[in-house]
Design a binder for these strands. Structure first.
Lengths: 206, 206
DNA sequence: GTAAACATGTAACAAGTTACATGATTGT
DNA sequence: ACAATCATGTAACTTGTTACATGTTTAC
């Protein structure tokens, strides 16, 4: 049902056609929730059917401009306040990490270095977006920029993490001798001697 | 197809039954790729059908222990090296942020503070896992721990980000006056005066 | 004996992707 | 005239979730 609320949130900002909403998904929501037009059009029909949105004016080329109804606004608010924002975590990049032990150290380190490069490109792209948008003083822009900030920081962290991982592997470390990078006390305190921890096993390997 | 490779990666480490694989998904992959037994059992059947895995011994209670075949190992390796690790980003928490402009500043700030609390709990849980696992010197444990490290750092970042966002909102900032936290130059250099940037609009809100 | 954990499956549904299909308008 | 973009839809398929359904073994 998240798609429905994503659309509702966009329509709460301003009326739009399915075509425009599809564009907005590509531009601003692509790193948060993606959707194709083939999913958006039928969902808009269902939402209109449920009275959450309605068709305002119909333009040329069959354009239908949808706008949110008061019922829709209520539903949006209800969704924001409900507690369970379930996390649909599907991180294919991270999933691959779990199989990297099948490679040689050289290959695995190389893999992390390539990951770092990929993440760096994403950071660059996101920063370009941040720099090119003419942010205004509206609340919706504030939230958009806060969300974008998260994306940038997260990808930047991923770069540093991948570089660190490659270093650890090249240095011949294993899970019991990993350098404790970016841990509690200070920022960027890399390469401290590790405190030992080993109690009981309940994860993954062997 | 990712589920298939997730299973393959686990089976590459050691033979296991569908039941055990389901448990492993819950324990170690839950923050990377989730799957229920109802999806796992049929997928294992298909994989066996394709010759990627095979049934080793059949135990009591109808237990079928699957093990990876050499064909499966090849397929796993191919998957690791193919370039396109497409990101299926579906972050419901972040999606909600895009609708928070509909709330009052007080409500929105409160929402971020609650988010920070939730993220903090996840950090705590992940750290407990890290501390309770008896990591060994195997390569698979190394990768598992590196992946877990990413999870911890990422959630920790999310805590700080949510706290920062709440502060910004309470301080009455908008998208053009956001304090530039955790930016390029130094680590943890908070609250620097912002450099101005406004070129052209191509994102989200009106 | 009975509850918990082990163990495997299927069916119905919801969500998401890819491909097919069509037509109007604008700009060059 | 032609290409690009606007504009909307459906069909077939894949993936993922929830619910249904069944039976065994172990520990108390």
């Amino acid at each position: 049902m998240s798609l429905r609320y994503a659309l509702l949130g966009l329509l709460a900002n301003h009326p739009a056609s399915g075509y425009e909403l599809t564009k907005e998904f590509e531009l601003s929501l692509v790193n948060v929730w993606s959707a194709k037009h083939s999913q958006i059009y039928p969902e808009l029909q269902r939402m209109a059917n449920d009275g959450w949105i309605e068709v305002g004016e119909e333009g040329s080329r069959g354009r239908k401009e949808y706008r949110i109804t008061s019922k829709g606004s209520n539903e949006l608010r209800k969704w924001i306040f409900q507690k369970e924002p379930k996390h649909n975590i599907r991180n294919e990049t991270l999933l691959r990490v779990f199989s990297l032990w099948t490679l040689s150290n050289e290959e695995a380190a190389g893999h992390f270095e390539k990951m770092a490069k990929n993440y760096q490109e994403i950071v660059k792209a996101l920063k370009e977006i941040d720099g090119s948008v003419e942010w205004d003083a509206s609340k919706s822009d504030l939230m958009g920029r806060i969300a974008l900030k998260y994306g940038i920081l997260c990808q930047q962290l991923a770069v540093e993490w991948a570089v660190w991982a490659a270093e650890q592997i090249r240095a011949g470390h294993d899970a019991t001798t990993l350098s404790d990078w970016k841990s509690e006390p200070g920022p960027y305190d890399s390469l401290k001697p590790k405190t030992n921890l080993t109690k009981r096993r309940n994860l993954g390997g062997s």
